[in-house]
């Protein structure tokens, strides 16, 4: 159990580091996917070690999470394409329309 959780933590932090360090928007999305997968590892691990006998919650959480991740990827990539079409660039540090 500790192994899965540690693996999940490491994967999550790798994804986070990618999101924080890379400039490219698609790379940020890749990092987010990795973080989601780290969460999925947790769902499966806790399902496997859960106390209820006939409980499939962890598995369904994982499946739904996958579905949400797919939706997020589709919309996120569409946004990236849209941004690229408007500004010819997807560098995250060049996008600062939200500057206060």
């Amino acid at each position: 159990m500790t192994f899965y959780l540690a693996l999940s933590v490491l994967l999550f932090c790798v994804g986070l580091a990618g999101v924080l360090a890379r400039r490219h928007a698609i790379m940020a999305l890749i990092g987010i996917e990795l973080m989601l997968n780290a969460a999925n590892i947790n769902f499966i691990a806790f399902w496997r070690h859960s106390s209820a006998a006939d409980d499939l919650s962890g598995m369904f959480w994982m499946i739904f999470s996958v579905a949400i991740a797919a939706a997020e990827a589709a919309v996120g990539l569409a946004l990236v394409i849209l941004v690229f079409r408007h500004r010819r660039s997807v560098r995250l540090d060049e996008l600062e329309s939200l500057k206060g």
Partner: peptide
């Protein structure tokens, strides 16, 4: 290919990793 403050980002990630571990 790295952001301007990538060191901070990686440092934060490592910090979080230690905390979570």
């Amino acid at each position: 290919h790295l952001g301007s403050q990538w060191r901070t980002g990686i440092g934060l990630a490592v910090l979080l990793a230690f905390a979570l571990l």
